[in-house]
């Protein structure tokens, strides 16, 4: 530490504020939680974590989040491509609306989507007519998670695509490569990393998402109950230890995703020197 030597003033003040704030808001609550959770012991934790209802809720959360992330990757790539590569009327509106899921309160999204995809809803009627329940089902949960995850992929892919410019395609075209081949072999590899980043962020968000999902999920134990909701259920029955155990599972999952993503990006940097 060479704090005394800093030229730009304010080190102590900003360090003080940051440390105080982080401690008060993050470190103390986190420590209190970990202390409490560790009090239950590993046996109890395994007992709770292996309960079928808990396992099932985690499976629902992971499965639907993964499905939503995959869909988000595809749609997000389309949005990013169209926004960067083409000029068309309403482009700025499209660009602006893309962030709506970040700005719209999740509860509002939740009730709107539920009404939209319910059996008599504007869109639900078509699904149900085809024999597909689009609300109160895994599909419904996935739809809600797709909604909240929309911005992640375009916002991660857009800058890279813009940076890439049309040069690579032009170079490939000079070799006589067709458009699809060019996209698949030249552009897509460049976009893979930001695509994965965006999808992983959407995935992580999906696992923790609550507000937009509870309304459309149906919340039947062993069927359409998601992990965050199960925490709520346990809390409402004053079963704090079970709630803490599920929370630990979810946190571990999120960290593993982000850790893997980080590891992948470091590996990529080493491989390609980008």
């Amino acid at each position: 530490m060479r704090s005394a030597a800093y030229v730009i003033p304010g080190y102590r003040v900003t360090f003080g504020i940051t440390f105080f704030y982080l401690s008060l808001l993050l470190l103390i609550p986190l420590a209190a939680f970990l202390l409490y959770a560790s009090g239950m012991g590993i046996g109890k934790f395994i007992f709770i974590a292996s309960e079928w209802r808990v396992v099932h809720a985690c499976l629902v959360s992971f499965g639907t989040s993964l499905a939503a992330a995959v869909v988000n990757a595809a749609i997000g790539l389309l949005f990013a491509w169209v926004l960067v590569r083409y000029d068309f009327p309403g482009k700025r509106l499209l660009d602006g609306l893309l962030d709506l899921p970040f700005a719209l309160p999740t509860a509002v999204a939740g009730i709107a989507l539920t009404t939209l995809y319910a059996e008599n809803g504007w869109l639900g009627q078509f699904f149900y007519a085809a024999g597909i329940p689009s609300a109160f089902s895994w599909l419904g949960i996935t739809i809600a998670l797709i909604f909240v995850g929309i911005p992640f992929v375009p916002r991660s892919v857009q800058p890279v695509l813009r940076e890439l410019g049309p040069r690579l395609e032009e170079a490939a075209a000079l070799f006589g490569a067709g458009r699809w081949l060019t996209f698949r072999r030249v552009i897509f590899p460049e976009l893979f990393s930001p695509l994965l980043t965006g999808a992983a962020l959407a995935f992580a968000r999906g696992i923790g998402e609550y507000g937009s999902v509870v309304f459309i999920a149906g919340n039947l134990p062993y069927e359409t109950e998601i992990a965050p909701l199960l925490i709520m259920v346990k809390l409402e029955s004053y079963d704090y230890e079970a709630a803490a155990a599920i929370a630990i599972l979810m946190m571990a999952a999120s960290f593993l995703i982000l850790l893997a993503l980080n590891g992948y990006q470091r590996w990529r940097v080493r491989q390609q020197g980008v």
């Binding site: 609550p29 939680f33 923790g208 609550y210 507000g211 925490i231 709520m232 929370a247 982000l258």
Partner: peptide
């Protein structure tokens, strides 16, 4: 990286 529900639990 933390679910809002988990944050509430903290």
């Amino acid at each position: 990286a933390i679910s809002p529900v988990v944050a509430g639990l903290f």
